[in-house]
Simulated scan of single mutants.
Amino acid sequence: MAIPPLHIGNVTARLPIIQGGMGIGISLSGLASAVARAGGIGVIATPGIGMDEPDFRTNWVEANSRALAREIRQAKANAQGGLIGVNIMTVLTNSPELIATATAENADIILSGAGLPLSLPKYVTEGSTTKLAPIVSSGRAAALIARSWQSKCSCLPDAVVVEGPLAGGHLGFKREELDDPAMRLEQLVTETIEALKPFVQKAGRDIPVIAAGGIYTGADIRAIMDLGASGVQLGTRFVATHECDAHINFKQAFVDATATDMVIVDSPVGLPGRALRNPFVEGALRGEKKPFNCPYHCLKSCDPTKSPYCIALALKQAQRGMDDTALRFAGANAWRVDKLLHVQELMDELVAGYEAATA
């Protein structure tokens, strides 16, 4: 069976594959444009996107917005007509400014999670055609957002990404839920589709459900789409590509990882997170603190006076190729990565795997 396209409103991606937004600086215009050229939806991650700007510490809101605008323009210029998305975490204190920038720059879609993006439509530039897709971890959350948007702005999500507990980075689950069969991605996709049915029927239009978290092969894509998902979002697979915007040391850590290197850490923002084991993570697991000075307070849920370390700095150190001072977020299947590929090679592999899989 040929792999189908992904329709989100009046825009279409040739392949039903969205590249996950990975901060800080892991997925920028280089990776996003390569994915878009290959037929998927390439996504720029916004957390700390302006950390390399000269005025980041003194004018960080403007620095981030400026850097985002530049990355969107570069990605679109190199996407050969493909779709470019932006991931904007709800928990970012400058999310309103980032949303306004993304829509003003005509990003094709905004994906927003790390909290319930109940106010996302409020900050969209008037007249924007940018699609809006909340990222949720349950059908209940999807219905809550749809109900809220319908009440506040007479609109509905253009798509919904449902992310399971095998994803990398911050997870929208309690530790004890990570291995709960009721939280398996297959179950979450089914319940999210059911939760959105009343809204779909009333609106007379589809709300595609995109599955994310632990999807690794084309056969995985086929299996989850056979359950009703309209597409998938993958992050980890795109780290191990030549076009990924991270330092080669970051990518090589994925190639070298084993199953025992996958660990769950308690993030300073109060959520469990999945990462690769390294000296920094070992220290975090022992409860070691890394003193830091925070001039901007980028995350609403972070108390800089109590946080054991600056997660933004730790993630940026990883992107720069550091080890002892770095936090490398990764999906549960990162240990399966054994080589670097070009994005086009990866997409070809995923498509071939989908089409070879039997229902």
Rank of each mutant, 00 (worst) to 15 (best):
residue 88 I to L: 02
residue 138 S to L: 00
residue 138 S to C: 04
residue 188 L to I: 04
residue 264 I to K: 02
residue 137 S to Q: 05
residue 277 R to S: 09
residue 131 K to T: 04
residue 326 A to N: 04
residue 306 K to I: 02
residue 320 R to I: 13
residue 233 Q to V: 04
residue 302 C to K: 03
residue 240 A to G: 09
residue 335 W to L: 15
residue 200 V to W: 02
residue 104 A to D: 15
residue 287 G to I: 12
residue 29 S to A: 14
residue 258 T to F: 11
residue 23 G to Q: 04
residue 3 I to L: 13
residue 237 R to H: 13
residue 51 M to K: 06
residue 90 T to A: 02
residue 104 A to Q: 15
residue 257 A to C: 05
residue 259 A to T: 14
residue 173 F to R: 01
residue 275 A to T: 03
residue 81 G to F: 08
residue 47 P to V: 14
residue 176 E to I: 11
residue 67 A to H: 03
residue 168 G to Q: 11
residue 138 S to H: 00
residue 251 K to G: 07
residue 108 D to E: 06
residue 240 A to C: 13
residue 142 A to M: 11
residue 241 T to P: 12
residue 136 V to W: 02
residue 325 T to D: 14
residue 85 G to C: 11
residue 166 L to R: 09
residue 131 K to P: 03
residue 133 A to L: 03
residue 213 G to V: 01
residue 60 W to F: 14
residue 27 S to G: 01
residue 286 R to K: 15
residue 293 N to A: 09
residue 217 T to E: 02
residue 190 T to C: 09
residue 179 D to H: 14
residue 357 A to T: 11
residue 163 E to F: 00
residue 164 G to S: 09
residue 164 G to L: 12
residue 321 G to M: 11
residue 183 M to Q: 14
residue 79 A to P: 02
residue 258 T to S: 14
residue 175 R to D: 05
residue 140 R to W: 04
residue 277 R to E: 10
residue 218 G to Q: 05
residue 124 V to D: 02
residue 123 Y to K: 01
residue 80 Q to A: 14
residue 80 Q to C: 05
